[in-house]
């Protein structure tokens, strides 16, 4: 029995639409990030300073997962958070303003691109590998105690599955039957270390068995595969049947961070052919779910939203250094 909405052509278009919006966003951030870092490359310079981890290639995870979530569900993500934030419904303008370090940003310029917090969509992310999982348990615990069918999703990379917090979190979630879904994005690389040199098992989904929870691995970066696997997992959590683990074999289309020359990357030649976006576009056209014209409308709309967000960010004020010490506490100040 399928507990989640079956895939229709309309839903397929929505999945593609989500992927297009994410790719358009990441391309725009890429452009803005590099716009003023030359000559040479100064990581701290420019309108967007600091590390930048972009998610191009991993859109299927975000689109297939986000399709099952509402604003009231919670999500914790990683240092590479834009795609899942967008799929979760985080406001593009405020997110972009945060990435640009502006006062109008989600964190008023105090967080940055690895530390996005949106109470409206219960979205957060952490720059520390695997450490986003435990807070998701607490969100799920709060939902469980209050009744209802809200769920929490913790997204992590495949490297996180080798960290202690991952195993502690899976055990506790299973023990307390928490409404949580763990989604592992396996993009083959932990910065420069290939998965084969870091991980003793071929599928992290198999690790679910150690904690008595279902584990599913989705191959080939398939957005429809993600839709189905996450549909089952989210439905199970909503029904009060406890946590699940989903691993998606996805693709890091670009470097670990911008400026990464990827000299270690042995798979680069085959990468363009694995880009999920043109592939899924062609799939929809082939099955008659969409025309080229529909796709043009989709990309135009995405570009409009993204450029609006970029404009909003660029025209927003930067934070006042006189307030650099604000927000350490909600009450009073440190003496």
């Amino acid at each position: 029995m399928t507990l989640y909405p079956e895939l229709t052509d309309e839903k397929r278009r929505k999945l593609l639409n989500s992927m297009v919006l994410i790719r358009t966003y990441e391309e725009a951030i890429l452009r803005e990030y590099h716009a003023d870092k030359s000559p040479g490359f100064d990581i701290g310079a420019g309108l967007i300073p600091g590390e930048m981890h972009l998610s191009a290639g991993q859109e299927p995870v975000a689109a297939g997962l986000g399709a099952h979530l509402t604003k009231d569900d919670a999500m914790t993500a990683t240092h590479r958070p834009h795609h899942v934030a967008i799929a979760k419904g985080v406001r593009l303008r405020e997110m972009t303003a945060e990435i640009f370090g502006r006062e109008t940003g989600l964190g008023r310029g105090r967080g940055g691109h690895m530390h996005l917090f949106d109470p409206e969509t219960h979205f957060s992310c952490s720059g520390i590998v695997a450490e986003g999982l435990p807070p998701a348990l607490g969100q799920a615990l709060a939902f469980q105690r209050r009744g209802g069918d809200r769920v929490a999703v913790a997204v992590a990379g495949e490297g996180a599955a080798n960290a202690g917090a991952f195993h502690e979190a899976l055990n506790l979630a299973a023990l307390w039957k928490l409404p949580v879904v763990f989604v592992i994005e396996d993009n083959d690389w932990g910065i420069s270390v290939p998965r084969a040199r870091s991980t003793a098992v071929t599928s992290n989904a198999d690790r679910g068995a150690a904690y008595g929870i279902p584990g599913v691995r989705v191959e080939e970066n398939s957005v429809e595969g993600v839709y189905e696997a996450c549909g089952e997992a989210v439905a199970r959590a909503r029904a009060g049947d406890g946590p699940s683990l989903v691993e998606v074999h996805t693709l890091r289309l670009w470097g670990h961070f911008e400026g990464d020359a990827q000299g270690y990357r042995t798979d680069l030649e085959g990468v363009p052919g694995r880009d999920p976006l043109p592939t899924y576009k062609q799939t929809l056209i082939d099955r008659g779910a969409m025309t080229e014209k529909d796709y043009d409308v989709m990309t135009a709309s995405a570009l409009e939203q993204v450029e609006d967000a970029i404009d909003f960010a660029k025209s927003s004020p930067t934070p006042d250094p006189a307030h650099a010490l604000d927000y350490v506490f909600s009450e009073g100040v440190r003496s």
Binding site: H122, P135, E168
Partner: peptide
């Protein structure tokens, strides 16, 4: 709780956030 301080302290954080 189990002897899983990262998990249950983190769970406290998530619950507090909610």
């Amino acid at each position: 709780t189990p002897i899983s301080e990262s998990a249950f302290i983190g769970a406290g954080i998530g619950a507090a956030v909610e």
